[in-house]
Design a binder for these strands. Structure first.
Lengths: 82, 82
DNA sequence: ATTAACTTGACAATAAATGTCAAATGTAAA
DNA sequence: TTTACATTTGACATTTATTGTCAAGTTAAT
């Protein structure tokens, strides 16, 4: 654990918490972890992103609908106006 | 504008920014806005949530895939372990 | 009992979101 | 055109969320 956390530039405390889901990892940490643990980077990232998404809509009745709208928006390449 | 912003408990400056997309509204502000402007609350909320989602995955190649994973997760009622 | 690995909780540091204010700009009617 | 009010802008303050450190507490193996 010391080895891994060192490579991640954090102390073991956080790593421990991340492992047990008490803390969220950083995007950067995710990719580093993928490398270190030789896991599939894409899968990990997808997992990570999907967790962030779910976090946003947790206990929202309209969550699913929002997801679908988001999907369509992406597909149709709608750009956000500044 | 003063009227509306007063009801939202913010000054006109923010309202102005929200209207022109420089600032994000709060969830609470969204629902109040729906009432004040007599818009459909659900639609506004869905719009609001979907924007938050899109924000999370902006310029992520794996965004769409993450969305799909998130959807499935919701459908299967997977609960997040504390 | 000693040691090293891991966990926990209280707190510090940083970063992001939200808000205020005051000054600048726009707009229309007198 | 000046006055009066509405809207916008930007610089900054406040609040809230996220990420991190540290020190003390467990656990497990020897």
């Amino acid at each position: 654990m010391r080895h891994v956390s060192a490579q991640l530039d954090i102390d073991t405390a956080i790593l421990s918490k991340i492992e047990r889901g008490e803390r969220k990892a950083t995007r950067e940490q995710i990719t580093k972890l993928a490398d270190i643990l030789e896991l599939d980077r894409e899968s990990l990232l997808i997992q990570y992103l999907s967790e962030k998404i779910l976090y946003e809509i947790q206990d929202e009745d309209l969550g699913i609908q929002a997801l679908k709208v988001a999907e369509k928006t992406i597909k149709y390449g709608v750009t956000k106006n500044k």
